[in-house]
């Protein structure tokens, strides 16, 4: 089930993170419990905490946030 505190659906029905591009603590917390987390290529890492949605291969950046492609 989608936690509406962190996620919402965009106009295309994709699940987008509500925290924008710099909400480090929730992004690390979500990734810590996510069975799909997969670390992206080193050149694409942006968060200092390695296990973070921001560093996950399955996030697709948008201009303001990212879409989780596993939700």
């Amino acid at each position: 089930m989608m936690d509406i505190a962190f996620w919402s659906k965009n106009e295309r029905g994709q699940v987008q993170f509500n925290g924008g591009r710099h909400d480090w603590v929730p992004a690390a917390g979500i990734a810590g419990n996510c069975p799909h987390f997969l670390l992206d290529d080193e050149d694409e890492l942006v968060a200092e905490e390695e296990r973070s949605c921001y560093n996950c291969r399955f996030r697709r950046w948008t201009d303001r946030s990212f879409i989780c492609m596993k939700r």
Partner: peptide, 18 residues
């Protein structure tokens, strides 16, 4: 070098469009 391009829903990039 890695170069960032536009992030836009209409562009068919995989995850970061670089």
């Amino acid at each position: 070098t890695r170069h960032q391009l536009l992030l836009h829903p209409a562009i068919a990039y995989t995850s970061h469009n670089s």
